[in-house]
Design a protein around this nucleic acid. Sequence first.
DNA 1: ACTGGATCCTGACTGC
DNA 2: TGCAGTCAGGATCCAG
Length: 272
Amino acid sequence: MPELPEVEATRRALAARLAGVPLAGMEVRERRLRWDVPVEVLSGAVPESTLVRVERRAKYLLLRLSTGTILVHLGMSGSLRVVDERQVPGPHEHVDWIFSSGARLRLRDPRRFGAVLWAGEHPEQHRLLRHLGPEPLEPSFSGAYLHGRLRGRRAAIKSLLMDARIVVGVGNIYAAEALHQAGVHPGRAGGRVGRHRAERLVDAVRTVLARAIESGGTTFRDYRGVGGERGAYADALAVYGRQGAPCLRCRGTLRLARIGARSTVYCPRCQR
DNA sequence: ACTGGATCCTGACTGC
DNA sequence: TGCAGTCAGGATCCAG
């Protein structure tokens, strides 16, 4: 379940291994992902292009080719690996990018919630990127900004933190972690989060995400890095998956609730 | 405008 | 052991 740290870890690994390498082609074995993979336009744009650099916006990877930009979203079960050209694709390994070096970048996505799309020369104007909120690690995501966006909202703060129009990249795992670190109850109405709590939340979101990136992301179930390795942040989770266990801060018992149709673990004693 | 719920999909897990 | 049912979750879509 890749959230921002997993996507960023993937981006860094891809950039280190494949930036500047020419592409020879693409192989699409299953085009039915979240949206159909646009095989025709990609087969025109990919051969004889070069992967210039790899960027990230929210949870989208931007493969910047010399001929335009491919958007890759990992959905919930997607992962990318760099493999040897002789490695036979397994089930659910739907797309390969074939590099002139012989290496292949291989997309595996059992649940097919991911996406591979063409975004042309101005990806920031693509419909999926156009309405996104600020990046959580950039200065524009501030306590004042968050406080302003929460004003008057009655939905649970957890749901609002996971709303990509308010801030991108925060999914179910890191929302729960950040709320716990900030001492904010996940069910609190957005409009009842004051300036002080908003500041704490911004700090907590930043800290949690930055640490998770350093750890190579969180492998709770199936996420894997580009070389197949697990993310180490799972060991640092304070609440996610720990319902019934003692809160690491106050020793109260962590409780499981459903907020916005998502399971949510929190400490009823130190989150208010 | 805002809110919560349904939806897409498959694998892992639980309970009988 | 086998099978049916439930859950997981990002982002979009829809109804109220």
